[in-house]
């Protein structure tokens, strides 16, 4: 197995073009486990840890209203440095593994692995994030909604690397919630993210670990967005009716197509998602009501 160590992004892209079979590695929290257990033996590893530009984030867009996070920024830094701007992503990052894993693991890695149980995916979907993919042919932005294609399959071309993820900083409430069968360091049985987009009179919602891919709960988003808009609640929020929260929860559960597995039953996952959706919406809306009032 070759170990490729580019110093710059340009070098990395050139190597990836020459060696599309090379597996990128940053924190190694996923790739090294697969190697150690002999589940995967790529012909080459492409080490991204020397590339400084992948390890930084900055606020871009017209008013600094989108945060561009380099693919190799570890979860710990997202929690510490971006907790205010990107509350949903920070919440999801806090639930990843142990402190040691959070020190090394990256959102780029989460996207590269594209596991349906990856913790940051529902937030990226609900928050309208885009994935920046680069190759020697150029750079493109892939909406998170189009990024996840199947179990551990994503929309990258063989010669592409994930260079960053762009997450809108909406200044509006976001929530992330995940069920696991212990109180820390646990893989998701199911997870849920909700993000309010008051500027667009819209709500984003997505489920994780409850379908072959992380996916948006579109019917739930549409129901709630329409409900809030038609009752003029973006401008003058009122406590949400229990019936609205329940309907939202039911539609989120319907968006999932979970399986029975060793971590939980399909029925439990649907049930838990409806509870998580109801609760997180309640928290987000309470937060929003407080801000607007």
């Amino acid at each position: 197995m070759d170990f490729l160590r580019p110093d710059t992004l340009a070098e990395a892209l050139a190597l990836k073009a020459q060696r599309p079979d090379a597996v990128p590695i940053a924190g190694g929290t996923d790739v090294m486990v697969e190697l150690n257990f002999d589940h995967r033996r790529p012909a080459a590893l492409l080490d991204l840890t020397r590339i400084a530009e992948l390890r930084s984030w900055d606020a871009d867009g017209d008013n600094g209203d989108t945060v561009r996070i380099g693919a190799c920024v570890p979860y710990t830094r997202i929690i510490e440095e971006l907790g205010e701007r990107l509350p949903g992503l920070a919440m999801a990052s806090r639930t990843v593994g142990s402190p040691q894993i959070r020190n090394r693991g990256t959102v780029g890695g989460n996207l590269g692995a594209a596991s349906p149980a990856g913790d940051t995916h529902p937030v990226l979907l609900a928050a309208d994030a885009t994935v920046e993919a680069a190759s020697t042919r150029g750079t493109r932005l892939i909406p998170a909604t189009d990024f996840y294609l199947g179990v551990k399959r994503n929309a990258l071309e063989p010669d592409e690397l994930i260079t960053a993820v762009h997450v809108p900083a909406t200044r509006a409430p976001q929530q992330f919630s995940k069920v696991g069968t212990r109180n820390a360091m646990v893989i998701a049985v199911c997870s849920f993210a909700v993000a309010l987009h008051p500027a667009q009179n819209r709500v984003g919602a997505a489920v994780g670990s409850a379908a072959p891919t992380p996916r948006r709960a579109s019917a739930a988003e549409e129901f709630l967005s329409a409900e809030l808009t038609s009752t003029n609640q973006w401008e003058s929020p009122k406590p949400l009716l229990d019936s609205v929260k329940r309907r939202f929860g039911d539609l989120v559960a319907e968006a999932a197509s979970p399986i029975d597995d060793v971590r939980g039953s399909a029925a439990y996952r649907k049930h838990a998602l409806s509870v998580l959706a109801r609760r997180t919406l309640g928290w987000a809306w309470q937060d929003y009501s407080g801000k607007v009032a």
Binding site: T95, Q175, K178, V179, N183, L276
Partner: peptide
């Protein structure tokens, strides 16, 4: 959250 069922996975703020 560390005292709650579910811990920092943020599943409840006391509900249920």
């Amino acid at each position: 959250l560390r005292d709650m069922p579910g811990g920092v996975s943020n599943t409840t703020h006391g509900e249920g």
